[in-house]
Computed example of a mutant assay.
Amino acid sequence: MSTITTTSLQTSYPPILPRQFSANQPQTIRLYPLSNYTFGTKENQPEEDPSVLARLKRLEEHYEIHGMRRTCEGILVCHEHNHPHILMLQIANAFFKLPGDYLQAEDDEVEGFKLRLNERLAPVGNQFSGDGVNDEWQIGDTLAQWWRPNFETFMYPFLPAHVTRPKECKKLYFIQLPKSSTYLHAMHPGVFEEDGLMFTTEVLSVPKNMKLLAVPLFELYDNTARYGPQLSAIPHLLSRYNFEFVDEDGNVTAQTPGSEQPSNGIKVLAGDDLEDADMKEEEAEDVKLKMENGT
């Protein structure tokens, strides 16, 4: 039996290679594994409004003073077993949302968005020492814009023709997580040494009353019943990109299309009750070992 080395495929029947099919492609995005990042918790961040009606009332008050409200949320992407995962917050074991929030009226769009990301995910307090590790968020492409025509819960990925004064616009930005932090904080958790240099893993910290989840694309796809139209559309938004999947040593282990099977489901990273995770850490390691052994 002959061995075909292309894409690590071993078979006696070599594949039929089509002509080049990569014209007008966007950039290839490099994704790093979940294990490159450290996850923790910080103080609760209760919701500003006790009900949906109260939230819409506050939106109306904002509109009367400042006009259309600007909201920014981030699609933070990493990988597990060579399949893209989205970092997502879960509130009260039911409500899912992306990191981010509405901007203050006086905020610059990008800088204000970075501040909102830090409020949600940057470590604070005694658990993580040193300055915020997430000062340099890599704000990428705007992948979607959702519009709220009226003081109602409905938002649309288009602006209806008869609407000239929308009440809110929400932008979803692509955010590529870095390989790891490279600033020097000897007392920072997750510090390791390589070739005489000190490195730290990137730290993301979630409020205690929320969960930080890593949700695979296959879980989001066509799942509006659980995640709603905005989040379930993320696989469509990311389909424009090609991905390189990098291991902990910085080696590219797979490219689009991937050579390994995706993980089994959502992985709880931090916050709330970790005992409620759909996949326990032991189960995750068992699945990873089976995948590595090809069983």
Rank of each mutant, 00 (worst) to 15 (best):
S2F: 05
G74K: 01
P229K: 06
A225P: 00
H236E: 11
R148C: 10
Q176D: 00
L177A: 13
F113H: 03
P166N: 10
V110I: 15
D222S: 07
V252T: 15
D273T: 00
Q230E: 05
I91P: 00
S51E: 05
T142R: 15
P14K: 15
V191Y: 08
F128K: 04
L117I: 04
R165T: 15
K288W: 11
S205Q: 13
D273L: 08
Q104E: 13
Y13I: 15
V268R: 07
P178Q: 05
V268L: 09
F96L: 06
A284Q: 11
D101S: 14
P14I: 06
P229C: 07
P50D: 11
G132D: 12
E219I: 11
A270Y: 02
T38F: 01
P257C: 13
I175R: 02
N36Y: 04
T28D: 05
Y227R: 08
E283D: 14
F128E: 03
E80G: 06
L31E: 02
G228V: 00
L217G: 12
F158C: 00
E80P: 00
F128L: 03
H62Y: 15
Q261H: 14
L76S: 02
A254F: 04
P216Y: 04
F21G: 01
T153V: 14
A122D: 05
P123V: 02
I91Q: 08
Q104S: 07
D222F: 03
T253E: 09
V124Q: 11
Y63W: 10
K208S: 09
S12R: 13
I266V: 15
H66A: 09
L231G: 02
V163K: 06
L220R: 07
G258Q: 13
T295M: 05
L98W: 01
L53V: 12
D107E: 12
E61F: 04
